[in-house]
Design a protein around this nucleic acid. Sequence first.
DNA 1: CCTTGCCTTGACGCTGACGACAAGGTTTAG
DNA 2: CTAAACCTTGTCGTCAGCGTCAAGGCAAGG
Lengths: 130, 130
Amino acid sequence: MLIGELAERAGTSTRTLRYYEAHGLVRPQRSANGYRVYDEAELRVVREIRALLDVGFGLDDVRPFVACLRAGNASGDVCPDSVQVLRRKLAEVDDYLGRLGAVRQQLHAQLTHAIAHREETCPRKRASAP
Amino acid sequence: MLIGELAERAGTSTRTLRYYEAHGLVRPQRSANGYRVYDEAELRVVREIRALLDVGFGLDDVRPFVACLRAGNASGDVCPDSVQVLRRKLAEVDDYLGRLGAVRQQLHAQLTHAIAHREETCPRKRASAP
DNA sequence: CCTTGCCTTGACGCTGACGACAAGGTTTAG
DNA sequence: CTAAACCTTGTCGTCAGCGTCAAGGCAAGG
């Protein structure tokens, strides 16, 4: 499988695949003419990467999962390093959820306060160019 | 008040104040030697900006609040444009809270699954440089 | 031979809110 | 005279994950 096919099958771009490779996450073979050649296992790897990035992981966080898959496991989650990252990320998400909840409350308070204290001393809309 | 004093009183840097000015949020006077001169009102403006940025607003979102303050209101929140931004931001935060909650659940599921299915087929730790 | 359609490396652009310099002017204190 | 401590404009760097050319090589069909 060449890079274009993998990109399409994984739902991403060739640029992205080369980017992952530059960061050590994907390791294609090379054919005689220098083309990158991928096997089916790499497709799973790329999908794993995409799934984790979608959830908010960074490339560095993804590495253990890729290594875990490469080690022959059915899931990239089952290795100690992966579990450690999962724990950390869960904690980060919880923390962020907390702060975001606080922000939400503050916004809600500001909004209700603003609606209660409507005033008319407000700036005129500036007209667009003539 | 010169830029250094304002920066200290507002808890930011001079670089930040010049940045805000470049984006039209702060309008200092100029003294004879070309120095920026700020009054007390600008201090309130800068504090408003900082407060909103801390909550996750972008500079563009902040503009209506600054204009509202400049129009003579005690709070930057009470003008229609500000209220509109507050509503939009609240909606954005709610949306994000929803997706982040889903992510949290997925992470939790992955984690419990991973712990249940521990396997030993995992990559060896690579040693550090000799 | 020429076009089409893959592939290669390389390098700059983007978003946002600044940090970190560089190179120079001004004012005050000693 | 000079050093210190302000100020000025201008420009480049940062973080992340790519998008978007640019310039060229290789393979196959007509």
